[in-house]
Amino acid sequence: MEIIKIGMADLGVAKPPSKLRTTGLGSCVGVVLYDQTHKIAGMAHVMLPESSLAKSGELTIGKYADTAIPHLINLMEKAGAQTRNIVAKIAGGAQMFAFLGNSDTMRIGPRNVEACKQALKDAHIKIVAEDTGGNCGRTIEMDATNGVLQIRTVNQGVKEV
């Protein structure tokens, strides 16, 4: 079994018996897609809500919710998944610096969650599990064999969804 590591602003696809893992989900959101019929998993580590926030230069597709999610769906389809079979699970989007007040620019975690939900809605993909918000970092691991998402939260242990 191989564990495929997904870095920040990265994405990837796996088939059994492989697993996908990403660490360091603070305000970032881990979006996990799964086609149960074809046993194909995908994961994106989304850092920011929309690509319009990109500075001039080359766009990093995996960094933004509005580009990462459509690209991940495309990669999964190329691997044999069918969009109508894909469901989503999301984790992360913490408000890591609550002391900074309610300024919208400082609400990166909640804005990332909202943007990921919108991109999934636009793609007609149902969210079947969610572990978002709070103020703790997370590590997630998706098993392509069964679609189980394991979420490790700092000071809160491990849960599976």
Results as ranks from 00 to 15, higher is better:
residue 7 G to K: 08
residue 5 K to P: 08
residue 63 K to V: 13
residue 79 A to G: 04
residue 133 G to L: 10
residue 56 S to Q: 13
residue 160 E to Y: 13
residue 24 G to L: 09
residue 27 S to L: 15
residue 31 V to I: 05
residue 12 G to H: 03
residue 1 M to Y: 14
residue 152 R to P: 06
residue 44 A to N: 03
residue 142 M to W: 01
residue 89 K to I: 04
residue 124 H to G: 12
residue 123 A to T: 12
residue 59 L to I: 15
residue 43 M to G: 06
residue 82 Q to T: 09
residue 75 L to G: 01
residue 27 S to Q: 15
residue 50 E to R: 14
residue 84 R to N: 04
residue 83 T to F: 00
residue 123 A to H: 10
residue 65 A to M: 00
residue 4 I to E: 02
residue 74 N to R: 11
residue 144 A to Y: 04
residue 161 V to K: 13
residue 23 T to I: 11
residue 158 V to A: 10
residue 44 A to R: 02
residue 39 K to N: 02
residue 65 A to D: 06
residue 158 V to D: 00
residue 107 R to H: 14
residue 47 M to V: 15
residue 36 Q to H: 08
residue 160 E to L: 09
residue 135 N to D: 14
residue 63 K to R: 14
residue 147 G to L: 07
residue 4 I to F: 05
residue 95 Q to T: 15
residue 34 Y to D: 04
residue 86 I to Y: 01
residue 83 T to R: 11
residue 19 K to G: 08
residue 11 L to P: 03
residue 28 C to S: 11
residue 35 D to G: 09
residue 122 D to G: 07
residue 29 V to N: 03
residue 51 S to V: 08
residue 136 C to H: 11
residue 36 Q to C: 09
residue 152 R to M: 13
residue 77 E to Y: 04
residue 11 L to A: 06
residue 99 F to Q: 14
residue 76 M to Y: 02
residue 136 C to K: 10
residue 63 K to M: 13
residue 101 G to H: 06
residue 42 G to K: 00
residue 155 N to A: 12
residue 155 N to P: 10
residue 150 Q to H: 15
residue 128 V to G: 13
residue 153 T to Q: 07
residue 34 Y to C: 00
residue 20 L to P: 09
residue 152 R to I: 13
residue 2 E to N: 10
residue 10 D to H: 13
residue 142 M to I: 09
residue 87 V to C: 07
residue 39 K to I: 05
residue 91 A to W: 02
residue 115 A to V: 03
